[in-house]
């Protein structure tokens, strides 16, 4: 868990801080969107929370409408 947070903090220092200093609003929004999702996906399993597999969800969805071999 500590390693994950340190890694993400390092990424923020490398890429987010220069964007903030340059006041690039759109780039900051793009960075933070990906950052928050990535951090969530990384931290939840470390906290013992199981994330349902994405493709299994679509597999069930497509099978339910009959689009599958």
């Amino acid at each position: 868990m500590g390693w994950i947070l340190t890694g993400f903090a390092l990424i923020a220092v490398i890429d987010l801080v220069p964007l903030i200093l340059q006041r690039r609003g759109r780039a900051i929004a793009a960075f933070l969107t990906v950052f928050v999702i990535a951090l969530t996906i990384a931290v939840l399993p470390a906290l013992g929370v199981q994330i349902p597999p994405v493709l299994t969800f679509f597999d069930k969805l497509f099978k339910s409408i009959g689009l599958s071999y």
């Binding site: 890429d15 987010l16 990906v34 950052f35 990535a38």
Partner: peptide
Amino acid sequence: KNLALIVGIF
């Protein structure tokens, strides 16, 4: 370029 690393880690 500033998005590349976080996209990679994602």
